[in-house]
Each structure stands twice: as structure tokens, then as C-alpha cells.
Design a protein around this nucleic acid. Structure first.
Lengths: 202, 202
DNA sequence: CTATTTTTATAAACACTGTTTAAATAATAA
DNA sequence: TTATTATTTAAACAGTGTTTATAAAAATAG
């Protein structure tokens, strides 16, 4: 009889409901305001209920990061159709920074939290996925002699540091010396200058 | 009569005691563990007491940042005696990153918190002080034709983004693809590569 | 030196947080 | 319908920042 199956389906449905609600609240009010009681209240269950579906809040954070990563990944793959490696890498950089600047709380959730050390250490965190995407792009750019020749790891760290730095500063509008209406232009100029500086051969 | 004076002195002494205790706890266990009750407990006063000396926890954070900034400032001025602008800027960068890597919770306190929007907006935050120091160094390096010619603001953003990025990633050991014993060397190589790329004239 | 006023300190409470436990309710099987 | 099992929650624990009303201490005035 399908009783067991139905129960399993219902369980999964409730789990999804919890996650979707958590995601909604996060998108509305940020991670700080996404409390267990908050989620429970909106789906009209008790807070204790949630602990029957998730080990702790960290596990919810983990799934939230996965969802947010989908948005991020979509954004930075916007120009994946392009052929020229160097231009494609530059476009990726633009998209990366643009995402962080216009979705600060999403970027923060993705890179300022580490729910992995404690739980679910088998899974590759979104951070790692971003990293390997970046790595691939840089590798093929170097292979085509369109990026300064250097150990791959160094190039990855160099580019990622810059992108993460510019994103972090933009997120909280810490470059307050740049007028707001020139901000987008400023970011663009920075990215271009950075990559053009590491362009080309030997 | 000096009663009023003595009272004022005692008040200031207690205020300092609170701040020093907060600083100690922060250095021992990080900002998370530095709670009002925690501070109050150690100086053997009630938590409510602290609110007679500080408006809220943010005001304590503000003073903590000032103290931490002193450490940071000392570190990044380590090589201020040097004469060659470019080398000095590079040394500053090394010191900057080294501080962040070896004092993650201090760097975090300095750049990941903003107690200014709400309170004490007259004072220049440590962040701004770091920024102007960086600006000065870059300006004179450009003036001596030792840095790629570009608008000062762009150069500042470029350098600061890179330094903040590399620091943020190092802080939480997010460049996990680099073995731990090669880490210091890796950071050094990155900084050298970055600055050498923006070295010299036109 | 007492009495009054002023200052100083705190206990207790409020509104939150994540999390656990034991008890109550609802669904299923006999 | 009763017994068993699965589901759900109320209540509590140990924290957090912060406020308020009250008590204790100290300074001042008579």
C-alpha cells in the first residue's frame, strides 16, 4: 500500500516548504532576520518541528547557499557563449562584481559563512564551485597565451583576491570617495585596468 | 573642593576599566564571546552598569576598533622609514596582508563592522584612516612615475581591493588549494606579482 | 551628627536567539 | 474500539542586548 510512499512525499514536501520559506525570508529581510521561530511562524508550525527535518540552523544555511549559488552561477555564466578566452574572463569578472554589488546579502551569505566544517563535509561548498569555474577560465586563458605566464594557482589567487576584494568593498559601499553616480563606471574601469595589466604573453 | 574632580576621575577610570576588559576578552575569545554580561562579570559589576557609561554595545565596538587600529597602524607603518616610494608601498602591502593573516579576528573587527552609521558619526572611522594612508603612499608613488599613470582614485581602489581581497581570503584560509607550508610564500609571490604588474611609467 | 538629596548600582524583566526534552495529539494497525 | 506508532508542540534551558524601577551608598545641607 502507498501509505508509506505518501508519507515520504509529504515529508519531502514539508522539508521543501521549510527551505523555500527560509529562502523567501532571507531574500526579504536578510540572514539575520531569518530565525527558526521566524520560519516556523510563517509556515504555521512550531519551531521544534524544524529540528525534525534539519539538524541545526547551519544545515538550513547550507541549503540556502546552494539556492543562492544557483543565482550567482547563472549570473557569472552570462557570457559563457563567448569564444575569446580573455574577453570571456573579463566578462565573467564584470558579472561577478555586478552580482555582489547589486545583491550584497546574497554574496555575503555565499562567502562570509562556513557551514561546512561542522556539518555535511562531504559536499563541495558553492565557494569551491566558483573557484573551479574561475580556475578553468584562467587556465584556458593562460594556455592561449592571453594571460601573463605564471603558476595557475597564483593566477587564480590573484584574480580571485581582486574580485573578492572589489566585491566586498562594493557590497558595503566602502569606496565612499567615489560618487554614487560614477560608481558603476569606476568598477568597470578597475576591472578593465586589472585584466589589461595581466594581459598577453610571457 | 575636589570631590567633583575625584568623582570625575573615578568615572573615567571605570570607563577605561570596561574598555580594557572588553579588549582583553575580545583578544582572548573574539568578538562573538565579548558580551555585555561577560564584561560585567569580569569586572564584578552588574550588566546594567555598563549602560551608564556607554550608550550601547556599538559604542564599545567603536572604541575596540580604535584600539585594534593602533595595532594595525603600527604594523603597516613598519617600513615607513624607507625612501623609495614603490618599495615602501610594497612593504606596506606585505605588512597589511601579514596582519590580516595572523590576526584574523582583529582584521575582521576593523573592516567587517560598521558602528558609525548609527552612532558617533563625527569621528573618522579607522577604515578611513587606513584609506588615507594608502592614498598618500600611492599618490607619491604615482608622482615619482613608479606606478602606472591613472586617476588616483582608481589606483587606490585597485590596490585596496586587492589587499582587502587577499586579506579576507587568507583570514579564513579560503585558498585551500595552497598547502599550508607554502602559504606565506604564496602570499608574497602574489603581492610581488601584483605590484610589479603596475610598476613604472606611462 | 542627623536628615535630605543626589548619585550610583543592581535585580528583575522584556523581547529576542538556537536548541532540547518530555508530554500531548493525531494517525494507523489489531 | 483499543493499542501502538508516528507526528507535533509547549515549555524549558542557556544565552543575547537593553530598559526600568528599586535599593544602596555617598555627598550635601541643616
Amino acid at each position: 500500500m502507498g501509505t508509506r510512499d505518501r508519507k515520504e512525499r509529504e515529508k519531502q514536501a514539508l522539508k521543501k516548504l521549510i527551505l523555500n520559506t527560509a529562502y523567501k525570508i532571507f531574500m526579504e529581510k536578510g540572514y539575520e532576520e531569518t530565525s527558526i521561530r521566524n520560519i516556523a511562524g510563517r509556515i504555521e508550525y512550531s519551531p521544534a518541528m524544524i529540528y525534525l527535518y534539519f539538524h541545526d540552523k547551519n544545515e538550513i544555511l547550507f541549503h540556502l547557499q546552494e539556492k543562492v549559488f544557483e543565482n550567482f552561477n547563472e549570473k557569472i555564466n552570462e557570457y559563457s557563449f563567448m569564444k575569446d578566452s580573455f574577453s570571456k574572463l573579463k566578462k565573467l569578472a564584470h558579472s561577478y562584481v555586478e552580482f555582489a554589488a547589486s545583491n550584497p546579502s546574497q554574496y555575503e551569505l555565499l562567502f562570509y559563512n562556513n557551514p561546512y566544517e561542522k556539518t555535511l563535509s562531504e559536499v563541495t561548498p558553492p565557494r569551491e564551485k566558483v573557484l573551479s569555474l574561475l580556475r578553468e577560465h584562467i587556465e584556458s586563458t593562460i594556455a592561449r597565451n592571453q594571460f601573463s605566464r605564471m603558476p595557475l594557482n597564483e593566477a587564480v589567487s590573484l584574480v580571485w583576491s581582486f574580485l573578492h576584494g572589489i566585491s566586498s568593498l562594493s557590497m558595503k559601499y566602502q569606496m565612499s570617495y567615489v560618487p554614487e553616480d560614477e560608481y558603476a563606471f569606476h568598477l568597470e574601469a578597475l576591472i578593465n585596468r586589472f585584466f589589461n595589466s595581466f594581459k598577453g604573453g610571457y
